[in-house]
């Protein structure tokens, strides 16, 4: 079979690089948004990876990240995020021996293990580290490695790792100090500070959901990944694609 298979043709379409000028244009636009966000939220957060990533977008957009000049985890986060949208960014070399570049943290650790080096130290380093929790403290995300959809009833809400159900999100709902009379002022202030550091301003509660999205099915909208608009058909139109499978019957 000399002709490229259909799959290959489709894949090659997906491998198109984003034109540099287009990437720069969008990243410049992002910088405006993230600058205003940064001014709005003057708070120190444990999410250094996130902050640095956003800062990278603000300060130098692709140029900064592409130059490999962001802090290690941020560089990796930026690399991963940009890679998804088609912008190639080199991986961080922070903590890597001789400034070498690795495709992933695992690759680095494996190399150290094969060489008989200190695997533990290598595992704790940042070299080649993949994206971790935005609120992470260095450990893997709670659901990292969990198979997709394990334990989730059908239609129960967002997939693991793509946002979290409302009830599990410490940034939403009642704050932990609410209604507690046993807390001292200091303890309450500490809890408020911790929550403040973890949680963004609640100025974009529906940020992930497309325009006009009403309350999602199930447990609430995943953060950043909402159903398409029209949950609750807009303007008399049919149900949204994920609100029921009108076309599924024909297919399945």
């Amino acid at each position: 079979m000399d002709e490229p298979r259909v799959e290959d043709q489709l894949r090659s379409a997906g491998r198109q690089e984003l034109p540099a000028d287009l990437a720069d244009r969008h990243l410049s636009a992002i910088s405006g948004v993230t600058t205003s966000m940064a001014q709005h939220r003057r708070r120190r957060t444990a999410a250094k990876v996130t902050g640095a990533f956003v800062a990278g977008l603000v300060l130098g957009s692709s140029g900064l990240a592409a130059a490999g000049s962001l802090p290690g985890p941020a560089q990796n986060a930026a690399a991963s995020a940009f890679a998804v949208v088609g912008v190639e960014v080199p991986r961080s070399t922070e903590d890597c021996p001789d400034g070498r570049q690795y495709a992933s943290h695992g690759e680095y650790v494996s190399e150290v293990a094969e060489a008989g080096g200190d695997v533990r130290a290598a595992a704790q380093s940042r070299c080649g580290m993949p994206v971790t929790s935005a609120r992470g403290t260095g450990g893997p995300p709670a659901h990292a490695g969990a198979p997709d959809g394990v334990g989730r009833p059908e239609g129960a809400g967002p997939p693991d790792g793509v946002g979290r159900p409302h009830a599990e999100d410490p940034c939403r709902g009642r704050p932990p100090w609410a209604g507690r009379t046993d807390l001292s002022e200091d303890e309450r202030a500490a809890m408020q500070a911790e929550r403040g550091a973890q949680c963004p301003e609640s100025d974009e509660p529906d940020a992930g959901r497309p325009e006009g999205a009403g309350p999602p099915e199930g447990q609430g909208p995943p953060e950043g990944v909402g159903p398409p608009e029209g949950v609750g058909p807009p303007e008399g139109q049919g149900p949204p694609e994920n609100a029921g499978p009108p076309e599924d019957a024909a297919e399945e």
């Binding site: 969008h26 990243l27 636009a29 992002i30 948004v33 993230t34 966000m37 957060t45 999410a47 996130t50 902050g51 990533f53 956003v54 977008l57 991963s80 995020a81 998804v84 949208v85 993949p130 994206v131 971790t132 929790s133 935005a134 609120r135 992470g136 893997p140 995300p141 709670a142 659901h143 990292a144 490695g145 997939p159 693991d160 790792g161 793509v162 946002g163 979290r164 940034c171 963004p200 974009e204 940020a207 992930g208 953060e223 950043g224 990944v225």
Partner: peptide, 21 residues
């Protein structure tokens, strides 16, 4: 791009999760 940048701090997951998100 904008939405990713805006909601980035809320994202939690690994590379695969990021891609799916």
């Amino acid at each position: 791009f904008l939405q990713v940048a805006r909601d980035w701090r809320r994202f939690k997951g690994d590379d695969e999760d990021l891609r799916r998100w």
